[in-house]
Nucleic acid binder design. Structure first.
Lengths: 168, 168
DNA sequence: TGGCTATAGTTGCTCAGGCAGTCGTTGGGC
DNA sequence: GCCCAACGACTGCCTGAGCAACTATAGCCA
């Protein structure tokens, strides 16, 4: 193994992706904390808020986030305790339950989002000319489609409409 | 707050970055595990292996990774126990100690790297035409430079030569 | 030289999250 | 209608990581 594998363009490419991601994540996290939210809590609020009725079954929520089902149980525990969410029994399947965003939860999200968008603009999209940004997003989209976040469970793109909302 | 903030191009852009990163990370992690390494352990090995003498002071290692100093203490504990690393006293400063890669550690890295490069090629760089890749890396580099991984502590790009190696 | 402050590393405590096992529920096959 | 496999949520246990406190050393300044 050669010493200069470290200068391999593939290593460099991954390094850039990882560092850009880490840097942005750090900025996001700092801003979430101003509104007493963690990154997962923000993700959960976003996922629920964009779902019909501001609710999702626990399992579906897990599938749409970076969490396992037990992880979801616990975040929802905390967020329910803090009044951002509540559980609602599923009338047609007594095994299932919904996580529903409360008005307080929606308000918290509304307070957090403008700053979040501002940070994205400031440190990400606003750093690049429109055509560079477009090229980059094109590349990211193709990588994303290749690695398919279906398994890893994605984050914040528009929901793929080809997945049934598993009506309940 | 409007319903279709969720279709805001800024949200979409971040979503793509996060999902591409998450997908790649998952592939990497799976491959590391084939060689009994975690993601942090691989990162530590890479950082040390590219440093002069295959060693770094604990603090410097923390600064170059995604870990706090106490985190570094514990990873090094585990890796020392597994024979991948060893601690070495710093002759000129008795507070400091080096983490040094052992031959076994170098061998483990050598076994892991080819597969790692293959995965990068397969799911990332190989997915894009050279000019798309170049545009994307250009964008990532500018975002990275903006958010400056100095605070968040970066990952796998070549070490910025403007930082003193804090000779010991 | 003596003392004071800053620094390097480690450790106790805490918390988030995953895995695997459990319990209740469902739906299909007979 | 009964049984059994599959499924949804939850819980016990464990691991990894951060913060803050602590110890030892270093370097500075009077």
């Amino acid at each position: 193994m050669n010493e200069n594998v470290f200068d391999d363009p593939r290593i460099t490419a991954v390094g850039l992706l990882v560092e850009a991601h880490a840097g942005l994540t750090a900025r996001f996290t700092a801003q979430y904390e101003e509104h007493d939210l963690s990154a997962v809590e923000f993700e959960v609020l976003m996922r629920l808020a964009r779902s019909p009725g501001n609710q999702l079954r626990m399992t579906d929520l897990a599938a749409q986030t970076s969490l396992s089902t037990s992880g979801v149980t616990r975040v929802v525990d905390r967020m329910e305790r803090d009044g951002l969410l509540r559980r609602r029994a599923c009338p047609s399947d007594r095994r299932s339950s919904y996580a529903v965003v409360t008005p307080a939860g929606m308000q918290r999200l509304d307070e957090t989002l403008p700053g979040h968008l501002r940070i994205i603009e400031q440190w990400f999209t606003g750093q690049l000319e429109p055509e560079t940004l477009a090229a980059m997003l094109d590349g990211l989209r193709r990588v994303r489609d290749a690695v398919h976040p279906g398994a890893t469970a994605g984050s914040t793109d528009q929901a793929p409409t080809d997945e049934p909302a598993s009506a309940c």
